[in-house]
Design a protein around this nucleic acid. Structure first.
Lengths: 221, 221
DNA sequence: GCCGACTATCGAACGACGTTCCATGATAGA
DNA sequence: TCTATCATGGAACGTCGTTCGATAGTCGGC
């Protein structure tokens, strides 16, 4: 059972979601496809368990985090940790929201993030929405990078910079009167950092949250 | 060509992404699978064109919107329009970020949203991040509802309320000391509205953006 | 009036996938 | 030792995306 999950995660890590095939997993484990079905009910179940498996590691990382004096700062660190975990395993991004299990480590993460909002002066509904918003920002920015890069950059025949350069060249050639915004930000897009982009989005949401909470925390000063 | 795209969108609208099969599409069009390949290079291309097709409608809806006095308010209306389009067609959510075409209606939407930030007192980088953040919030909250509901509720043998009730019952049974946050918000989750949840997240981000822009707009007073 | 070139259509065939099913070992309690 | 349960392995089925060659229809040029 543990070997099945570890093999599935290894396949996903090595070559992305398209590489996770029951036949490929059986070959890696030196067994037949039928054996895998004794442990899991199907591919969906396999994926759910594999996700829960790695989310367990993320959850322990979150639990190891020392609580600080500011709840929103702690919330921010947790969101960044979650984001980094998805950067390490891009396939997590595509399937993150899929694992809406009734319980498990997914719920544990939700709880851990939510506990920080308990330290803020908010209504239950505001807390509920705040955690959803933070998770939404993480997922929304992570799915972008969860996409498998085109085969040309995987082969190494095209670097990521050259690939992005194709965008900027096309954009620079657009009519400046029809596309004033694209021209405004094309230099920013060129060589942009995905993580910086995520942090900017996260900080906007957290700034709004801080405003909503009135900058007052209920935790020890 | 137009018929192919219309048929693909119709299939997606009727029964979700799993229903879009080249054989099913050929049958609906009264033709063979080979004919479809004369118009599109493959299923990915078909999906990209179908998405661009419906995004064209969203873009015209955005262009029809009367500019208001406040750029952020306009940005908010546009984000809501985009979200509503995804609610109407849940399959859009799963594939929205997929269509990162170099040009097309996807770029047009990006430009339209970005033009609102040109009316704000921001640096180019801040504008770039602001649009990414808004799109991230829309996508992050839309993918949640882009998931196909379990077959039981599709059959009608289980209502959405009963399905959500399974969550709340399990959560209420959890240890209140280990899961204080889940207990805090379980009542909010029960019968919650996805759109309200999205609006809360969007408003947090826009509040942060308004703070960043110093509440000063460059557009006519 | 014929002909090559292009446009467009169709469905059989291929390989890969998820899944099912059953024959076959292993293992442990009686 | 017998037998019931646990566990394995791989052939077989149906569906999917995709490829390919056969087959018409539609022109303009000689």
């Amino acid at each position: 059972m543990e070997a099945v999950l570890a093999g599935a995660v290894a396949l996903l890590d090595e070559s992305g979601e398209s590489a996770l095939t029951l036949r490929a997993l059986a070959a890696r484990l030196g067994t037949g496809v039928g054996s895998i079905y004794w442990y899991v009910s199907g591919k969906d179940d396999l994926l759910d368990r594999a996700i829960d498996h790695v989310l367990g590691g993320v959850l322990t990382a979150l639990n190891a985090q020392e609580p600080g004096t500011d709840a929103i700062d702690d919330l921010r660190v947790m969101a960044v940790t979650l984001f980094d975990a998805i950067v390490d395993r891009p396939w997590l991004g595509a399937y993150f929201m899929r694992n809406t299990d009734v319980q498990g480590n997914s719920l544990g993460l939700y709880e851990k993030l939510g506990q920080q909002t308990l330290r803020l002066d908010l209504t239950p509904r505001q807390r509920f929405h705040a955690v959803s918003a933070v998770v939404g920002v993480v997922v929304g920015n992570a799915v972008d990078m969860g996409q498998e890069p085109p085969p040309e950059v995987l082969d190494g025949s095209l670097t990521r910079e050259e690939f992005l350069g194709r965008y900027t060249r096309t954009w620079r050639a657009l009519d400046a009167r029809e596309y004033p915004f694209v021209h405004e930000i094309v230099e920013e897009f060129d060589g942009h950092d995905d993580k910086e982009q995520f942090l900017a989005a996260l900080d906007l949401t957290l700034a709004g949250l801080r405003l909503q909470a009135g900058a007052r925390t209920l935790s020890p000063p």
